[in-house]
Amino acid sequence: MHALLIVNPNATSTTPAGRDLLAHALSSRVKLTVAHTTHRGHAADLAAQARTDGIGLIIVHGGDGTVNEVVNGLLGDPCPRSMRSVPAGAVPLVAVVPGGSANVFARSLGMAADPVDATNQLIDLLALRRRRTVGLGHCDNRWFTFNAGMGLDAQVCEAVDHGRSNGKLVTPGRYVRHAVRAFFRAKREDPTLRIELPGQEPIEGVHYAFVSNTTPWTYLNKREVHTNPGTSFDTGLGLFAMRTMRVFPSLRVVRQLLTAGLSPRSRSLIRFDDLPQIRIQSSTPIGLQMDGDYLGLRSDVTFTAAADALTVVAPPTN
């Protein structure tokens, strides 16, 4: 099989030695070509060209942003009209060796967080021909692999992206600090969001909303954060939204999110799993993020679940 290894050399946990080890190990299993990204959007261009060239496998060594670019480069931007399978055509298989700070998509697939361990794991998976199909989310003419959101998390992603552009290292601690600052900045603001779900009355008075394509929603180092434990790559989308910014109700929900085995509950919490579609409108433009990438201000976004959209090299589900 001819494979393309797409490497983001600027990702948080990639190193020259690790990249060389990965390429050397993979060369024993596949006919490998290596490409390094040089600018934003480059991974998407490389992936699109790989599909045109008939490459059978794309291996991504980078963070969640690089993975997102590859997926969008492979699948393009047409919005799925239903939960039915997206026609795959000659879309290459996708495999991920973590190279970023959180690596949510790879870890949610069951890949090891350490790049060396994940490399050895991938070699075994290729030898055993392990593959599975996963669902994706779609909104704003883009695909997302694990989560999206409007409001609070988008503000955090915007701040982290700004720090990254100024050379600051991306760490879980930096995300937490930005989240606390964003919460207290937004605490006195009126809710602006209105949510529409299939077959239900619109939900008004919402401050922020997270949309999940799998669980966990994210990781803080080794700690999993589950907003929608019933959501997976094999279901529809999960919704987690809050109708309050008061400190104590918010702290109770945060404690539940960080406690293993607890399912978040609150009178102010709106939570659904397995939704085919979610429409979120805002009375004033509000931030949108997908897979940790801040995309700008939006007033009306529809999130759609697409089943069996991508075939990946990954361990089987338990």
Rank of each mutant, 00 (worst) to 15 (best):
G54M: 00
N141K: 05
L220C: 02
P115R: 10
D20G: 12
T133M: 15
T14H: 02
A112R: 08
V170K: 15
D153V: 07
T192C: 09
Y219R: 09
F303V: 05
R164M: 12
G135S: 07
L4T: 08
H178N: 14
A95P: 01
D153N: 07
D308P: 00
L310I: 05
V7N: 02
L258N: 03
C139A: 15
M290A: 07
D53M: 14
I6Q: 00
R130E: 11
A43M: 06
T317W: 11
S27H: 15
S28N: 11
A17C: 09
D124H: 12
G296K: 03
R107P: 03
A182R: 01
P316A: 15
H39V: 06
A23W: 02
N72T: 08
V34F: 01
T37D: 01
M290Y: 06
R130G: 03
P191G: 05
G173K: 04
F183G: 03
R252L: 13
A186M: 07
K187H: 15
G163T: 04
L21F: 15
D64V: 01
L239D: 00
S268C: 14
L262D: 14
P80G: 05
T119I: 06
R188G: 12
R185K: 11
V180P: 06
H36Y: 11
D234G: 03
S101A: 15
C79L: 09
P285G: 12
A179P: 02
M83Y: 10
G230D: 14
L258A: 03
P78W: 05
V160D: 01
G205H: 06
L93H: 07
R243V: 03
R298M: 14
A260L: 08
T192I: 12
V206R: 01
I58H: 01
M83P: 02
D20N: 06
V134Q: 01
R132G: 03
N228R: 05
A241T: 11
H226F: 07
G56M: 05
L46D: 00
D300W: 10
G56Y: 04
V97Q: 02
D64H: 06
V312M: 07
L109C: 09
D234C: 06
W217G: 04
V91F: 02
T52V: 13
P264T: 11
T231C: 06
V116M: 14
D20R: 14
D234S: 10
D291I: 07
S212D: 10
S28C: 04
L4A: 08
V301S: 04
L136D: 02
Y219C: 07
M242F: 09
V225R: 01
N120Y: 15
D64F: 13
L128W: 07
T133E: 11
R51N: 08
P315C: 12
A95T: 02
D53N: 11
H61Y: 14
A309G: 06
P87A: 06
V156L: 07
H138W: 14
T235C: 04
S82M: 08
L109P: 00
D274R: 00
T244F: 01
L125D: 03
D234F: 02
F248A: 02
N221F: 15
T235R: 00
F183S: 03
N68L: 05
H138F: 11
D274F: 02
